[in-house]
């Protein structure tokens, strides 16, 4: 019997969700492997449909939890699914919508809606944007596919490991996805991915970035609109804030490869506790100068460190309480 799957997006841009459509036409026919039972965006499935479903094998959940509807959907899917997979930075870490948490929760707008008839009531906006596992009723996610958006090769690696049982040209898939050996071996042996598996690499982006690292000395902060070399030299060494050192690999250095600094959409690598702290530590330890005034000058040139270092991970990294 084919596994029963759900594909769901909460508050997000839908890029991760539509990857499934791209996979079906570009990579492998999904109907050969799975029976899609619930997919609001494509099938128009409703919450009532979900309530009628007894059991689902796998749910691919993308988007952040930003409304009461998102939360209710996530909680119900956790109860009905054997395996809940967070797809994309929004579901895994809160993503870019999580930047909203830097603002005070707005109450004025809610007050404006006071006299609305009950039948036109809208779903409540949550006070804080959360990652999927930041919701009270969700004790765990079973796998994570990071990225903004999650790329086709990694989503397909997750689909073939969790849905196809490793049958779908598995060796080629995992080679293409550049997954660590420790993760691929149990999948190929039929055991499936380990609990909490992250479908990405284990090292930092710098390990796969094609740029040349020459001299680890940080002289001055440069902003991307200012002049910098268009050579293949490491962007951080040139003074641009690039988060490759504090970000999990798996993208192959996609952004740095086109001359744009990494902003951390794959989350932190396993060896890093806090990506922001790691960035501050890594940069400050390589300051060329030792003079306090010059150090102060460099430090003053950093702008919006929170919005930069936690661009995609603020809800997961900086919100300790569930709720």
């Amino acid at each position: 019997m084919k596994p029963k799957i759900a594909i769901v997006s909460a508050s997000g841009c839908r890029a991760c969700e539509t990857t499934m459509l791209d996979i079906h036409y570009g990579v492998s026919a999904l109907n050969r492997w799975a029976e899609i039972q619930f997919w609001p965006f494509v099938l128009g499935s409703s919450m009532a449909d979900l309530e009628r479903i007894d059991h689902l094998d796998v749910c691919f959940f993308s988007g952040a939890i930003a409304t009461g509807s998102d939360r209710a959907m996530a909680e119900m899917l956790r109860k009905k699914c054997d395996r809940l997979v967070a797809v994309g930075a929004c579901a895994a870490y809160g993503g870019m919508p999580g930047l909203k948490n830097l603002k005070k929760p707005a109450t004025a707008e809610a007050a404006d809606r006071g006299d609305l008839p009950e039948e036109l009531a809208l779903p409540e906006q949550e006070n804080r944007v959360r990652a999927l596992d930041g919701v009270d009723g969700i004790d765990r996610v079973d796998a994570v596919v990071p990225g903004c958006p999650a790329p086709v090769n990694l989503v397909w690696a997750a689909v073939s490991a969790l849905v196809c049982g490793g049958e779908a040209d598995a060796r080629i898939t995992y080679a293409a996805a550049r997954l660590p050996e420790e993760m691929v071996r149990p999948i190929l042996s039929g055991l499936g991915p380990p609990p909490g598996a992250v479908f990405a690499g284990e090292k930092a982006v710098c390990a796969t970035c094609s740029r040349k690292k020459e001299e680890k000395r940080f002289k001055a902060v440069k902003r991307p609109y200012q002049a910098y070399e268009s050579t293949g030299r490491c962007l951080l060494e040139q003074g641009l804030i690039c988060q490759g050192i504090a970000t999990r690999e798996g993208c192959g250095g996609l952004c740095t490869g086109v001359g744009v600094p990494c902003r951390g959409c794959y989350g932190k690598p396993p060896a890093t506790f806090d990506p922001g702290a790691k960035m501050v530590s890594a940069i400050s330890s390589t300051f060329e100068t030792e003079k306090p005034a010059e150090i102060q000058k460099i430090a003053d040139d950093f702008v919006d460190m929170t919005g930069c270092f936690y661009r995609y991970t603020l809800p997961a990294q900086c919100m300790l309480m569930k709720g």
Partner: peptide, 10 residues
């Protein structure tokens, strides 16, 4: 919500 407070080049 996303843009205010960010560096403009972002």
């Amino acid at each position: 919500d996303l843009c205010i407070g960010r560096a403009v080049e972002e």
